[in-house]
């Protein structure tokens, strides 16, 4: 078993959101989808804000000089920072829609509810107009365009002298916590270790897209197992990588995947991202190798000191008075 922590980096990020005359929406952002789930989650955030479906939105990929800035898909920060920007941009479009609907329905803009593709008056659902109609109307007048960034939350104040200083404190904006437990089986004659089961509990705040979030944990646990057992670059005496391809740099495969039980601990965190969400994708890499290492240490009686804990290293660590393998 092991615990993990992952930061939320509070940094600037921006997005444009627009809805065209046919009722379809676009999110224009410097954030990119490369397996992070942004393509699902950012659309969900924008759609919920304006009362449309995620499918009504597309994420527009373009040169980053055209889109508002984002730090990129690193460190599991897209939802925390760009999600905040998308919500802010979509909120401006929602304001425009409420104003248009208020004219149509002769109601207060503040009383307009945007949901299920329809703008209606709170408490009087029969008084309604479709958002597609409003979008068509806007296409002939003031266009539905929003821009957003949102203020990045400030880091906790440093009180006196701390061992981590201001830089370290910045990492404690809305931190994520995790705890993983693993069951492993060791073949003592060869050192081959298999991970049979992983239980992963994560506090990533509010889970916006559960299917996507579970996928992030499944994938990251597999990568964590790879880090623990098989993935490692090796170099020759000329500093050239000896395993620059996937034949010898051994990722885990589907056939190696254990059962992964996932629990999301959804508790409120001060300064969390949109709707109380924090990041997730990289966090399950943290505790997985540590939990495997701790489990192996129980089995062999001592820690295996080098990653990856290859079969040969595990076996060698069980041999009397022999140096560990180099490389």
């Amino acid at each position: 078993m092991a615990i993990g922590w992952w930061p939320s980096f509070s940094v600037p990020s921006g997005a444009y959101v627009k809805i065209d005359g046919d009722g379809s929406g676009q999110i224009i952002t410097g954030a990119q989808e490369c397996g992070t789930g942004a393509v699902m989650t950012l659309r969900q955030l924008a759609a919920d804000e304006v009362g449309l479906r995620a499918d009504d939105f597309e994420l527009v990929y373009q040169d980053t000089s055209v889109a508002p800035y984002d730090m990129g898909a690193t460190g599991s920060q897209t939802l925390f920072n760009n999600g905040r920007a998308v919500v802010a941009a979509a909120a401006q479009v929602a304001e425009q829609l409420r104003a248009l609907a208020a004219q149509h329905l002769e109601a207060n803009a503040a009383d307009i509810v945007l949901a299920d593709g329809v703008a209606s008056v709170a408490g009087t659902p029969s008084a309604s107009v479709t958002i597609a109609e409003l979008a068509a109307q806007a296409a002939g007048g003031e266009l539905l365009i929003g821009h957003g960034s949102g203020a990045p939350p400030a880091p906790p104040t440093t009180v006196g002298s701390t061992c981590v200083g201001d830089v370290g404190m910045a990492a404690w904006v809305a931190p994520q916590f995790s705890c993983h437990a693993v069951r492993v089986k060791l073949d003592r004659d060869t050192g081959v270790t298999r991970v049979l089961q992983v239980s992963a509990a994560h506090d990533s705040g509010t889970i916006i897209n559960r299917v996507g979030a579970e996928g992030q944990v499944q994938g990251a646990v597999l990568m964590g197992i790879g880090q623990a057992l098989t993935e490692g670059t090796t170099y020759d005496d000329q500093a050239r990588q000896r395993n620059p391809a996937l034949l010898e740099y051994k990722l885990q495969t589907c056939a190696d995947a254990p059962t992964v039980d996932i629990s999301f601990i959804e508790i409120a965190t001060p300064d969390a991202g949109p709707r109380g969400a924090k990041g997730l994708a990289e966090a399950p890499n943290v505790a997985t190798p540590a939990a495997i290492s701790n489990a192996l240490a129980q089995l062999v009686g001592h820690p295996v000191r080098r990653l990856p804990m290859t079969a040969e290293r595990v076996w060698l660590s069980m041999q009397p008075a022999e140096p560990e393998v180099a490389g």
Binding site: T230, L246, K250, Q252, T253
Partner: peptide
């Protein structure tokens, strides 16, 4: 055979 993983292995 000794294998480090269960597919795509030599």
């Amino acid at each position: 055979r000794l294998e480090y993983r269960r597919a795509m292995e030599i």
